[in-house]
Design a protein around this nucleic acid. Structure first.
Lengths: 149, 149
DNA sequence: TATTGTTATACTCTATAACTATA
DNA sequence: TATAGTTATAGAGTATAACAATA
C-alpha cells in the first residue's frame, strides 16, 4: 500500500497507530469545537455532568477516569464560562454537586452535534462496516481491562 | 453489553476510546519492557535508527513525527545507555548520524519480540479476524491524513 | 480517623525561541 | 541566509502530598 518500509515499521506498531489516531482526531475535534469556546475534554466532562443524576466532583472524576485534582481544574474552567455551577451538598457538606447551567445544556447539545459530525468525517475513509467494526473492537479492548484508576 | 448508560456515554466517544486504548497498551508495554531498561518510545526510535540507511537526528525525527528538540532528548537517553552512537557526518558537518551499537541492535531484537508479544496479548480479547480488521482500519485512518508534522 | 475539595508542587511530553556551528 | 543540533523555557496533562472543612 505505502510501499515505504520505514512507514511500515511504524504503522505495524499498535502504539504508534493509537497515538496518531488519537492525535489526529484530537486536532480535528479541537478545531471543530473552537467556535464553542470549549475543548474536547471539557465537553466530555459537561456531558457526564448533564447525566440523569447530579454528580459530585469526585463522582464525575471516577466516571471519566481522571484524578480529583484534575477535576478541580476542569470544573474551574467550565464554571468560569458559566456552563456549570457548584453547590454544596446539603446531605454531606464536603461534597460539591456540579450541575450544568441552562447555557451549559444548550452548548452541550450543539457541541455534541459537532463532535459526532467530526467523528463521522474522521471515520469517512473506512467503509461503514469497517468503521463499525473499529468502534466495537475498541470498546471490547477498553472495557476488557480494569481502568487503572 | 455493559448496560451502564454512564459507561456508554464515554465508550461511544471515539476520542475516549483512542485515549484509553493507548493508555492501557502503553501501561502494558512499559511494564513488559522494564527488564530491558527502555521505554516504548525509545524502542521505536531505536528501531527507526536500525533501518537500512543511516539517519541524521532530523531525518529520524521526521520518520517518527516528533520535533527535532524532542529527538535530542531521545538520542541523549539512548546514547546514555550505550545503545546508539552519534557521529558527525563528513559530507555535512552540521548533521549527527546516529547509529545503533552492537548492544543496541541486540537489545532491539530482544525487546521487539517482547513488544510484539505484548501487542498480541493486548489484542487477545478480539477474534483474530477482528484484531486484523482493527489494525488495518487504524492504518487506513492514520495514513489517510497528512501528519501534522 | 477517613473523605472531599483544594492548593502547591513535580513530572512527562511536547513545542517555540534563540544560540552555535556549519553550509 | 538557511539548516542541524542544542539549550532554555513554557505549556499541556497528569499525579502526589499536604491542608482545611466536614463526616
Amino acid at each position: 500500500m505505502t510501499g515505504d518500509s520505514s512507514t511500515d515499521l511504524l504503522t505495524s506498531r499498535l502504539g504508534y497507530l493509537f497515538k496518531h489516531a488519537h492525535l489526529q482526531l484530537t486536532e480535528a475535534s479541537t478545531r471543530a469545537l473552537e467556535p464553542f469556546g470549549i475543548g474536547g475534554r471539557e465537553l466530555a466532562v459537561l456531558a457526564v455532568l448533564a447525566g440523569e443524576d447530579p454528580l459530585s466532583q469526585l463522582e464525575a472524576a471516577g466516571r471519566l477516569g481522571v484524578d480529583r485534582t484534575t477535576m478541580v481544574a476542569l470544573v474551574d474552567a467550565l464554571e468560569g464560562k458559566a456552563l456549570v455551577e457548584r453547590r454544596r451538598s446539603e446531605r454531606d457538606r464536603r461534597r460539591n454537586i456540579v450541575q450544568p447551567t441552562p447555557a451549559g445544556r444548550d452548548l452541550l447539545h450543539r457541541a455534541e452535534q459537532t463532535r459526532r459530525e467530526t467523528e463521522r468525517r474522521f471515520l469517512a475513509p473506512l467503509a461503514p462496516a469497517d468503521a463499525d467494526g473499529l468502534v466495537r473492537a475498541l470498546q471490547t479492548l477498553v472495557t476488557s481491562r480494569p481502568t487503572a484508576d
